[in-house]
Write a protein that binds this DNA or RNA. Structure first.
Lengths: 227, 227
DNA sequence: TTACCAACCTAACGACCGTTAGGTTTCACG
DNA sequence: CGTGAAACCTAACGGTCGTTAGGTTGGTAA
């Protein structure tokens, strides 16, 4: 099992497999969309995302994925080590994409309230843009533990929790927030933000639910309370 | 399929099966604990709860349950229609137990803030008393949808959401809460209350996490905000 | 004594699962 | 042209799953 490495660690079928690195296979042409015309690997990842999000990781069989992608099972195993690796690749990519952007945007903003507002609004936008991602992530994170997956998700979500905790600490330092346990505040805020997303993702994603109005209402409730 | 009925709807193996009612099998003696000495049915239910809570509904096989209970597979199918029926029986019983008590206690209390405080405190107490129950319920509710189970849980949790919504409406009527969408407030409050429970249930349930101090902090944050 | 039924059992059934051994095709490169 | 590797394929492997057909037992009622 080696170390926790940032690298993908797939491929290299017939070779030694003891090497932890193993270079990443990149598509020969830079394809944009994920239609039937795109690369096999991209199609596999996208179909996997769709079906994983719909039925959950465990209830999705690799056969369903390869059927949707129009390939056979060994093809899937050519591109990833196993089902878990497929999932991790998928989620890590999507997560880091949004997380890094969110992080850099927040650093350019002053004031706790405005930061929180931006955090919620941006998160909502990401989720509306592709509801499969939050649906898969929340379902898997809050669902029954899956060996090799649960720890991976814990690690991912910890980085976001750390970000929010930092926001809370800063808010307390600047006097915008009352003195309190920053982790309690961060957890509470994440709950207020995440569960509407979760609700949205597991319904038939009505277009007008995750609005910026709702985002602001959440921040308002968090800061000023409902009483 | 038939209608949505309150009754259990198990048993009646070789008989017609079209009858929706079917009387409930009660143990011949009233056994208290769930040791090896109690009735087979109670032992099955308790073992099912333990393993379902630990690994989730789908990842739990009936073989694991009957092994833990010390019986064979046909015995399990003698007491319930199938795996889903076993789960529903389990959850319905535990849920209604706590929900009814909670409901009646809340009706004897005046004042929104005191009611909310009691709601959270009591919920915490239930969860500390047997963490398997919230763990199983949240895991299954927030996890990937399971045919025949998801709708069942939606129905159950809707009753509690209605209760909380009523509290919010009353609070707004009495002026203790600002005018706002009562469902938004109810959802937000449930999030603030449930996720710490969820966190507690999926960790190794540290004795001193779901304290009445945390309960009060949640109500305080909900009413007065963190800003 | 006999008949019956609740309460269990042994032993399988068929379906599906993740994974892989061992090909074949295509094509860039020498 | 020949070689080799990338990108796929057919066809299975062994295992686990939920469920059940068809017993056996032991006590109770007629």
């Amino acid at each position: 099992m080696a170390q926790i490495r940032g690298a993908r660690g797939s491929r290299a079928k017939a070779s030694v497999r003891s090497a932890t690195k193993s270079k990443t296979r990149e598509p020969r042409v830079a394809t944009a969309s994920v239609e039937g015309s795109s690369s096999t690997e991209a199609r596999l990842l996208d179909c996997a995302l769709t079906i994983f999000a719909e039925k959950g990781y465990s209830a999705t069989s690799v056969r369903q994925i390869i059927d949707a992608a129009g390939v056979t099972q060994p093809t899937l195993y050519y591109y990833c080590d196993d089902k878990a690796d497929l999932f991790k690749r998928l989620v890590r990519q999507k997560y880091e994409e949004s997380h890094q952007q969110l992080d850099s945007v927040l650093q350019q903003i002053d004031g706790c309230e405005e930061r929180l507002r931006t955090l919620v609004r941006r998160s909502f936008e990401y989720c509306v843009a592709d509801p499969r991602i939050p649906r898969l992530m929340f379902q898997t994170y809050f669902g029954p533990p899956i060996e090799g997956i649960a720890e991976f998700l814990d690690e991912l979500t910890a980085t976001r929790f750390a970000l929010v905790t930092r926001l809370m600490r800063d808010g307390m330092k600047s006097g915008e927030l009352k003195r309190a346990d920053p982790e309690f505040l961060a957890l509470s805020f994440c709950n207020l933000m995440d569960q509407p997303i979760n609700l949205f993702a597991r319904m038939s994603h009505p277009k007008r639910y995750l609005t910026s109005k709702l985002a602001d209402a959440i921040v308002e409730l968090f800061l000023r309370g409902g009483g």
